[in-house]
Nucleic acid binder design. Structure first.
Lengths: 226, 226
DNA sequence: CAAAAAAGAGAGCACTGCTCTTGCAATGGA
DNA sequence: TCCATTGCAAGAGCAGTGCTCTCTTTTTTG
């Protein structure tokens, strides 16, 4: 009887997961550049060539890890989204969740928001998971704007077309005035996290928690939350 | 006759420069991870072991390139600092210079603001050149604040100690209220640049110039410039 | 001019990603 | 049930890497 889930298919899933787990371990321990297919195979008691049955190249393994990292980060953001009721508090909570996940998984963060790996261009499979954090932030603003009397200053004329296109693309139910600020805040959030993570704040910012919380609050104000 | 600049010493300087130039070429062409000592040596017509007389390891070569990159970026920022008179215009000009340099030297940007290289920790020699852009931004705010009537909203109590320590460290002549915003804007600037450079804005932000200019203007407002 | 320091050349080690061939075992149709 | 097909593992091998030796040559220095 041929189930689509034969013993062999189940084994394949398990081995694939084991490879990713071991790769993630090495990634966390040494960073992406030292992630070696041979070392992963060795640790798993298989020969290196066997690993190529599961991932046709090192880059494919990295891509799998990248997708997982985006998903994990997105999940961390979504998990705290509804912990607060006030929009500003929700925004800050999400920012702090992003920071906390990143500090806990620095090498995975570097994989997705650090330098793109050598000559490597992210395949389309990564764009959807990559958007999750952004969608959470958009959602918070959307919910807040249902409330009364949230207005935005007019944009400079040169930016209006871009703002309207942007709004149509990423948040059709949001006023175009807020879309550039939202995209900017999204990028700036990762500027803050990246600087802390990659040591740029060493000998500069000491009380990281207070600093970040305040900066995240300012980002919230920048997208119109009060 | 022993000049401190013997023929050998001059040759050493030249060869060192040639190595860095070739390394920079490979860096620009292929990225840091594919920068190979052997390839550099090959291209220069020397054997790989000879190169170790100049740079004791690959990481030392990278460190030299990192310092040069910080200096080049800092110089680009300083070069435009005095092009405008209005503080906001000066701020925006510096931000745009940072962006322009980064877009023109993506791999060097990745070297200094992307993921730290494998197990590599930046030596102290890099901290001074790394600060140049930040100092330019601080200077703009300092100059602007000499002007009349620039005030800042009070900080939350939990942030006051950090703000005062920060102000004392990086800008003793600036009011503590502005120091956290300045540090945040500094990081956020590189968030914007990094997102554009590393493809995070693909299919999101189209009119990058207008978007960036507007975002940089908002950063300026965030540090009190009008 | 001789001793010392600096530089280059080449072999070699241990490692990497990846390919190819070979042998074995599970699968699924006749 | 038999047997061809398929999936997987193993091993050898290629070209490349960083880095360390030793040996020779060249330049500088006392």
């Amino acid at each position: 009887m041929s189930t689509a889930h034969s013993a062999r298919a189940r084994a394949r899933i398990e081995v694939t997961a084991a490879i990713k787990d071991e790769a993630r371990r090495q990634l966390a321990a040494e960073g992406a550049a030292k992630l070696s297919l041979r070392a992963v195979a060795r640790e798993l008691g298989m020969v290196s060539s066997a690993l190529y049955r599961y991932f046709p190249s090192r880059d494919d393994l990295l891509t799998a890890l990248i997708i997982d990292a985006y998903d994990a980060l997105g999940e961390a953001a979504e998990a705290v989204r509804d912990n607060a009721t006030q929009p500003v508090e929700r925004w800050i909570a999400v920012c702090e969740a992003v920071r906390a996940w990143s500090l806990a998984h620095p090498h995975e963060y570097a994989l997705i928001y650090g330098s793109p790996v050598p000559g490597y261009t992210a395949p389309d499979t990564t764009v959807q998971p990559a958007a999750r954090v952004g969608l959470v932030l958009i959602g918070i603003v959307r919910d807040a704007i249902r409330g009364p009397g949230v207005t935005f200053p007019p944009l400079p004329a040169e930016l209006r077309p871009e703002a309207e296109r942007l709004a149509a693309d990423i948040a059709p139910d949001l006023p175009p005035e807020v879309s550039p600020a939202l995209a900017a805040a999204w990028a700036q959030l990762f500027g803050l996290v990246g600087f802390e993570l990659f040591g740029q704040f060493n000998r500069v910012v000491e009380d990281r928690e207070s600093f970040f919380r305040h900066a995240a609050g300012q980002l919230a104000r920048g997208v119109g939350l009060r």
